[in-house]
């Protein structure tokens, strides 16, 4: 019997990520990792792309990981775990090691996933390795100091898309990576957020038990890059969900399903105004960018509703 998704039950097992890691106070990434790993009863083996989560959890000679963990490089968390998984399958098949229902999971940030690691991820899921790839998406290269990635929202100030006198922040919309992964036709793809912890945990369980490659895109607040208080992480993450900037859904064997529908779809502004990275958008001359972003959020939301049979 799987452990019930009740915090008191889940807390009975020691954390798989120890304290003493050096992620910033209020980081969303370790919340995601803790919640997801708490939801999995089976043994796990992890790979981690270069990025905040990787560097902050394993500053030699310390490691915060209580489970097997490997970091190789930035763009290859998926190909690295594919090698680990292939080794496991080969050696189990040959009777060299026992079969133990190991769950293989790769963690990467949006830089390591949307951008530099996209090819390795696409290849690894196409090959059908049994693993879950988790993108903790904080919408920029936070580890190197907040540079824009293809996950950065339109209008956001980053250090390589600064809000300048002529160009007011990032000029492009976020790449819809979750849809790209769904287009691979793999058994399970989902978008989630830690503010909806039960939804995140349920999806995690489905993902690691889907019998093939799975992908989850999980929104991860970075208070340094997003510019908000360290205690506002959960609230602002939930605003991204309630404004439908970050809808929660899953694609199971090709069937799209909305897993959360906000009672009232809030204007995207409600999410933007809580973050310093969008401050410049509230100047009158940049107002049109908020409108553009709202239009795009609406367009994608409508499309998602249609795909999910809700429109």
């Amino acid at each position: 019997m799987a452990t019930k998704l009740l915090p008191k039950e889940l807390a009975k097992r020691p954390d798989r990520l120890s304290p003493g890691h050096r992620l910033c106070a209020g980081c969303g990434a370790s919340i995601i990792v803790r919640q997801m790993l708490a939801a999995i009863d089976e043994p796990v083996v992890l790979s981690n792309a270069t990025g905040c989560l990787e560097v902050a959890t394993t500053i030699y000679p310390y490691t915060a990981w209580r489970v097997p963990w490997i970091h190789n490089a930035f763009e290859n968390a998926a190909s690295t775990i594919s090698g680990v998984e292939a080794a496991y399958r080969s050696m189990v098949r040959q009777g060299k090691i026992p079969e133990q229902d190991v769950k293989f999971i790769a963690f990467g940030g949006d830089g390591g996933t949307y951008d530099i690691g996209l090819q390795a991820l696409s290849g690894a899921v196409e090959r059908g390795h049994q693993f879950l790839y988790v993108c903790y998406d904080n919408g920029a290269y936070m580890n190197t100091g907040i540079q824009r990635s293809s996950a950065t929202p339109l209008g956001a100030h980053t250090t390589t898309s600064p809000a300048g006198k002529v160009i007011p922040g990032k000029q492009q919309f976020r790449k819809d990576l979750t849809a790209i992964m769904a287009a691979h036709g793999i058994p399970y793809v989902a978008q989630a957020a830690p503010s909806q912890w039960r939804d995140l945990m349920k999806k995690t369980r489905k993902a690691v038990n889907c019998g093939g490659p799975a992908f989850m895109n999980v929104l991860s607040s970075c208070n340094r890059g997003w510019r908000h208080g360290t205690d506002e992480t959960v609230e602002i993450t939930q605003l991204a969900v309630d404004t439908c900037y970050w809808p929660l859904y899953e694609v199971e064997e090709g069937v799209w399903r909305l897993t959360y529908k906000p009672r009232e779809k809030l204007p995207v502004e409600e999410w933007l105004k809580r973050q310093g990275r969008f401050r410049h958008l509230f100047r009158p001359e940049n107002r049109h960018l908020i409108d553009r972003l709202q239009e795009e959020v609406d367009r994608r939301w409508e499309r998602l509703l249609r795909l999910c049979g809700e429109a």
Partner: peptide, 17 residues
């Protein structure tokens, strides 16, 4: 694999395993 970069990456993962 889909590239040599992934070939060597998978080799490292498998060897570590």
């Amino acid at each position: 694999v889909e590239s040599e970069h992934s070939a060597m990456s998978a080799c490292v993962g498998a060897s570590a395993a």
